[in-house]
Nucleic acid binder design. Structure first.
Length: 298
RNA sequence: GCCGGAGUCGUCUAGUGGCAAUGACAGGAGACUGUAAAUCUCCCCCUUUUUAGGUUCGUAGGUUCGAGUCCUACCUCCGGCA
C-alpha cells in the first residue's frame, strides 16, 4: 500500500505527558505493534553522553525499535526549538517514505508544539555575542531599548530571556500557530499524582544505582558543569552532592522534588492544549491501535 | 536535681515593646514560538470579593495605652554539672 497517496496519509502519532509517566514504554510497545519509528521530543536526549540522568531510551528499546532525536549534538552545543523542528520534520517525512508510522514522543512541550502546530521560526539564530550582550543588560535597559525600537514586550516582561528573544527576533513575525493537521493523533498520558510520585521515586533510585554520579563526574570533567546538557534536573544536584553539600539521601530527595516540579510545569503546558486526548497508559495503547488499525498500513 | 541556651506560618529562619510578623525551601495557580529538565509571574494563618474582618509567635498568668519582644510560673528540647 505504499502508494504516494498512502504515504502522505500516514498519520503522525504524538504521545505527550509528564516525566516518568511511561511515554517511552508506550511508544516502544506501539511502534512494535503497528510498525512505527520513534522520534524523541526531549530537550535533554539530544545531547550525547548523558544517558542515565536524562532517562534516555534503554539499549534494549533502541534495538527493538528505531529511535530518532537522540544523541544529536555534543554536550556543549546549543540546540534550539527551531533546530528540533527542522530535524523532526525531516525525520517524519523520511519515516513516512519508508511506509512506517512516525511516533513523536516526549515531554518538551515547546518541541512538540513546534511540530504539530508548524511554528514559523523565520530568520536565523543570532550570534552568541549579541545574545550575551543583551543578557548582561538590566531589565530596565532592555525595556527602554524595546520602547525605542518599537519592539513589543512579551506578556511576561520580567522574564529576561523572553525580552531578549523578542529583541533578537524582532523583525521576524513568528507567532502564527496553525491548527493541528487532521492526520495527527495526539495522546496524553494522565497519571494519578501519588502514582507518578512513586514512579519518579523509583526512577531516581534506579538512576543512582546505574551510576548517574559517575556519569555526571565524567561529563563535568570533559565539558564542565556549565555546559548545556548539564542543566538537566539531576546534574545540578549531583554537583552539590560531589561538593559535599548534600548527603546521598538528601540528593535523591532533591532530585525527586525537581522531577515533581518538572512534571507539574509540563502538565501546565499540556493542559491548555485542547487537541490532546487524555488516557492512562493502557487506554492510550488500545485507542491508538484502534485508530491506526483503519489506516492502510498492513 | 542544679546551672546555662532555646521554643515563631508544613520545614528552616528574621524579628530596637508599636501595622499577621523577615527571608529561604516545600506546596498551589499560571505564563512561555529559537537555552524549555530552562526562565519568569502570582498565591501561600483563617474567613470574605476587598485597600475589610478574625485568630496568632510552647502553655498560663502579669507589667504596659500597646507584648513575638519585658516579668513570673509551668511544659518541652538541647548543652554543662550531677
Amino acid at each position: 500500500m505504499a502508494t504516494t497517496d498512502g504515504v502522505a496519509n500516514i498519520p503522525l502519532v504524538v504521545i505527550v505527558g509528564p516525566t516518568a509517566s511511561g511515554k517511552s514504554g508506550l511508544a516502544v510497545r506501539l511502534a512494535k505493534q503497528v510498525g512505527g519509528e520513534i522520534i524523541s521530543a526531549d530537550s535533554r536526549s539530544v545531547y550525547r553522553g548523558l544517558s542515565i540522568g536524562t532517562a534516555k531510551a534503554s539499549p534494549e528499546d533502541l534495538r527493538k525499535v528505531p529511535h530518532w532525536g537522540i544523541d544529536l549534538v555534543e554536550p556543549d552545543e546549543r540546540f534550539s526549538a527551531a533546530d528540533f523542528q527542522k530535524y523532526a520534520f525531516g525525520k517524519i517525512a523520511e519515516i513516512r517514505s519508508r511506509g512506517k508510522i512516525p511516533i513523536l514522543a516526549g515531554g518538551t512541550g515547546l518541541y512538540i508544539d513546534s511540530v504539530i502546530y508548524n511554528f514559523s521560526f523565520s530568520g536565523k539564530d543570532v550570534d552568541f555575542e549579541t545574545r550575551e550582550f543583551l543578557t548582561n543588560q538590566s531589565i530596565d535597559w532592555l525595556h527602554t531599548y524595546c520602547y525605542k525600537h518599537h519592539i513589543k514586550l512579551p506578556e511576561n516582561h520580567l522574564n529576561k530571556r523572553y525580552v531578549v528573544n523578542n529583541i533578537i527576533h524582532a523583525n521576524s513575525s513568528n507567532s502564527i500557530r496553525e491548527s493541528k493537521p487532521d492526520n495527527t493523533i495526539v495522546v496524553g498520558i494522565i497519571t494519578e499524582n501519588s502514582n507518578l510520585e512513586y514512579k519518579i521515586n523509583t526512577r531516581i533510585d534506579q538512576m543512582f544505582a546505574n551510576g548517574v554520579v559517575e556519569e555526571a563526574e565524567m561529563m563535568a570533567k570533559a565539558y564542565g558543569w556549565g555546559c548545556e546538557a548539564m542543566t538537566g534536573n539531576v546534574y545540578r544536584i549531583i554537583r552539590r552532592y560531589l561538593a559535599d553539600e548534600l548527603d546521598l539521601d538528601e540528593a535523591k530527595r532533591l532530585c525527586v522534588v525537581k522531577d515533581k516540579q518538572l512534571a507539574k510545569r509540563q502538565m501546565t503546558w499540556f493542559k491548555r492544549n485542547r487537541d490532546i486526548k487524555w488516557f492512562d497508559l493502557e487506554g492510550a495503547y488500545t485507542f491508538l491501535v484502534h485508530e491506526l488499525g483503519v489506516t492502510p498500513k498492513k
